[in-house]
């Protein structure tokens, strides 16, 4: 057991150091990622200026900006750049063999690498994020209270787990199809639209809203922001998080199953 923890710790440490090599590029990249927010602010200000009322589906011209900023935070937890395509590439190029030989679990290793990646990301991105959130402080409603804030943090962490296992499952499909780029693209499009990254899901007319509400994608961006902005009634708060946990468990099991089934199918040639 101790040896095992030590192995994991070493892997985590190596991944951390590897990540820190490009910290300058990282920080600049993060700051640039806020640029689209600038156009969003102008666009929504223009929309609200000519809209019939002061609010659209419960959003004011301020909270909508807060919404976009919060989804960026949510995405900082739930988005997994390169995870699925990385797994697919390893399968295609046969690099996956090393996980069959070495006493390391593929998903466990990837999870640690991802945690290291995210930890570095948060330390480097904290500056740019703090700056932008400070500058945009006026767009935010007053602090929602400890209970909601706790739920918000939990939803961010669950979002990370959900994002990881969902995308890992997508990548593992490569055992069957080898080339999954187009599948991933479709997923990305779908995700952008249905996770609430593009606009608050409340804007969707029925029956689409109910439909999207049943999908796990909303937990990746919409849900944390909705919690913070008080869009989720307090009595539904913990129930919602419970459903999210259910989805996380589902995708943990699915990714495990896909990995093992994939290993059984896999045949590696050459070296």
């Amino acid at each position: 057991m101790v040896a095992r923890v030590q192995t994991w710790w070493t892997i985590l440490k190596i991944c951390l150091e590897e990540r820190l090599v490009y910290r300058g590029d990282f920080a600049l990249g993060t700051l640039m990622r806020f640029l689209p927010i600038v156009t969003q602010i102008f666009l929504w200000t223009a929309v609200f200026a000519s809209a019939a009322g002061n609010t659209i589906e419960g959003y004011t011209s301020e909270t909508i900006i807060a919404y976009y900023l919060l989804t960026m935070l949510g995405r900082a937890f739930s988005s997994m750049p390169g995870l699925a395509s990385g797994i697919a590439k390893q399968v295609r190029e046969g690099e996956i063999k090393k996980f069959l030989i070495q006493p390391i679990d593929l998903l466990g290793y990837l999870l640690l690498a991802r945690i290291a990646h995210k930890l570095v990301y948060y330390t480097v991105a904290a500056g740019p994020f703090a700056l932008v959130f400070y500058l945009c402080g006026d767009y935010f409603p007053p602090f929602p209270g400890m209970q909601v804030f706790t739920a918000f943090i939990i939803s961010l962490l669950l979002g990370f787990a959900l994002g990881f296992f969902l995308e890992a499952s997508m990548g593992l499909v490569a055992f069957w199809f080898l080339e999954v780029t187009s599948l991933l693209f479709v997923y990305m499009l779908f995700n952008f639209f249905c996770s609430g990254h593009m606009f608050p899901l409340d804007f969707l007319p029925e029956p689409y809203f109910t439909l999207v509400n049943f999908l796990p994608l909303k937990y990746l961006a919409y849900y944390p922001a909705a919690i913070y902005l008080g869009k989720v009634p307090p009595e539904e708060l913990w129930q919602g998080l419970l459903i999210e946990t259910g989805w996380v468990v589902f995708f943990i099991i699915l990714s495990r199953y896909l990995m093992n089934a994939g290993y059984n199918r896999y045949s590696g040639f050459g070296g």
Partner: peptide, 9 residues
């Protein structure tokens, strides 16, 4: 969707 809420931008 946006134009459901506003006549023009």
């Amino acid at each position: 969707l946006v134009y459901q809420f506003t006549p023009d931008i």
